[in-house]
Write a protein that binds this DNA or RNA. Structure first.
Lengths: 342, 342
DNA sequence: CAGACCCGTGACAGCGCTGTCGCTTTTGCC
DNA sequence: GGCAAAAGCGACAGCGCTGTCACGGGTCTG
């Protein structure tokens, strides 16, 4: 329990506490010799500035809050999303002497907004990073903005105002579709996600763009709805596989649905990837745990969160293109070239 | 940006700031009328005490730190473990006006210990909750104890000293084994986990006790090693299924290995649960996502973490039995009564 | 070489809260 | 009714740090 204060250091280095403060904070106007003397004293005494005292004096909290949808709220929790964001943001915070506050919010809880407001009023973070899907919920956004706290939204979807960091979902979906087409598939189906998640629309249009780029037609029969759950993926696959001309590849707007597709394929006796290629989106941890491991799109969550942290702490505005972090296609076992066996 | 201070409240309620402080902290010796007047003023002004000022004055941080193994360090990240602990601890913290600091530590990083020490010296949490498997690493424990910070270990394994919270792994494993036996299985195999995780030993002895309780013999051929990874589960299952007299049920010491067993069974054309029952341990999110959904043992992680938080914040010692939280068997699709079909 | 200026440093007053102590009422009791 | 004890409340000094300002001495101008 380090009880060493700035006064102890000052005494040992034979300077005033203000000079110690200058050295600690890297302020100018300290002679090199003095600076070294102080630094030595700090080392000798193992002095650590008291964050509370500093906060009180500077009127700053040195805190960043991460608000995300409570994973419990999902049927199939995508903890990986949360943990990756935490790590990225934590990295940005720690590098700058900030601490991270995590705040899971269940948006179906009527008190969620109140809890957010309470947290902000209590801890007074200098900025809030709002993860998807909360990031495109107007009331959540409004609650945070009303508090006067800096807000960075993560993948808020189209028409977003204010500051945000995102991946280009449309581009990523297009790339995946192109990849599928490059494997020889021409009947590529798409399973849409929950309409509430704005990214879903972008993924759909990317899918369409990918088809067009490959010279393929968009067949409405090959586009079916899901709601992001595993179960909805199962249903969608059942619907698609029952088609007169079933697809040879299915691209799902998220990994959970892709997992559902895999399950249905297994039930139908359709082998993946031999008879059917399946691709997902998100690269949740499940993607590499299921069999066959899922080809999917990986969002650079760590990088996104890190960038958001930088924006808050370094108070940068950032050119728009700096805040679009490119996604990456991860090819695993669930996709393969079209077998010419008919 | 609430700039309301205790002085504003005092002025409005016509009392001294000290009395406001008394009301805020629920101290005695305030007349009911005065108390109400102050509370009304607090409400009117929407006053929130400044945590930094309070910390500075009380010499306390109102912080609890959760240190856990960086999920990135795993091949198959068990994010669910981390997220559940976070939530349980957060619940305990928030209920008491505490904040939570999360600190992922990669134990293979040589600077991990240094980082932990740095975090503690910087943020000065009032207590540290150390998650497994870090909780039974002597150097990690020593680092935290050296800092003089209160430490609560989670499932530290046998021979643990100091304060800890755990589930009775042996009892849970015994219960699962008994359950399997009650389904009619007599050839029940066990896949051990990574030797480093102390809980693994307990689970094995629970398995043996379960067999004995059911009047079954322990067959060494049915006990194989794994290392907690999916791949090791695959290998173990391959080994077991190749036996002259293969088991009709396999109980894996964790869910990842159980998932691997499922994969191998699928490759071998052995249907689960019809021809083979499979049980896991941990109830990670994967357990309900794979097909067939896994029968497993659920650690009450939320409750464990909540209890740890209580211990730190309320400074309770706690009778030993209060700190053993019972686990629960979750029956899903991967286990079924033994088919009498030979 | 005088005046203007900058550099390096320290004294001191807060930041918003709690702990201590002392003073004034009220309460309890014979 | 009188007195001790307890209750109710306020003044004030910190907690450890930073911001402001003042001051002495050196450097730069013309």
């Amino acid at each position: 329990m380090s009880k060493i204060t700035i006064t102890d250091v000052a005494r040992r280095a034979n300077v005033s506490i203000k000079t110690v403060s200058r050295v600690v904070n890297g302020e100018p106007n300290v002679r090199d010799g003095t600076r070294e003397r102080v630094q030595q004293a700090i080392l000798d005494l193992d002095y650590r500035p008291n964050p509370s005292a500093r906060s009180l004096a500077t009127q700053r909290s040195y805190l960043v809050a991460l608000i995300y949808d409570d994973p419990d709220a999902y049927e199939a929790p995508s903890c990986g999303y949360v943990v990756n964001l935490q790590q990225g943001l934590l990295a940005a915070c720690n590098a700058r002497g900030f601490d991270l506050l995590i705040h899971p919010a269940n948006y179906r809880d009527p008190k969620a907004l109140e809890n957010i407001a309470k947290m902000i009023a209590h801890a007074r973070p200098e900025g809030v990073v709002l993860a998807a899907p909360l990031s495109n919920m107007p009331d959540v956004v409004a609650t945070i903005e009303d508090s006067g706290t800096r807000l960075i939204r993560l993948s808020p979807g189209p028409c977003a105002t204010g500051q945000f960091v995102e991946t280009d979902d449309a581009e990523a979906a297009q790339a995946m579709t192109s990849y599928l087409a490059s494997l020889g598939h021409s009947r590529i189906a798409f399973v849409r996600g929950h309409a509430k998640h704005a990214a879903v629309q972008l993924r759909l249009s990317g899918y369409k763009a990918g088809l067009r780029a490959a010279g393929l037609d968009v067949d409405p029969a090959l586009i079916v709805d899901g709601d992001n759950s595993i179960a909805s993926g199962e249903n969608a696959a059942a619907q698609l596989l029952a088609l007169e001309q079933p697809p040879t590849a299915i691209f799902a707007a998220n990994d959970d649905m892709a997992a559902g597709i895999l399950r249905t394929a297994s039930r139908f006796g359709v082998s993946v990837p031999e008879q059917l290629s399946v691709a997902g989106f998100d690269d949740i941890s499940l993607a590499q745990q299921i069999y066959p491991a899922l080809t999917t799109v990986r969002q650079p969550l760590h990088a996104i969160a890190y960038r958001a942290g930088e924006m808050i702490i370094d108070n940068v505005q950032g050119a728009h293109e700096d805040n679009v972090i490119p996604a990456e296609i991860v090819v695993r076992e669930s996709t393969a070239p079209l077998a010419r066996q008919h």
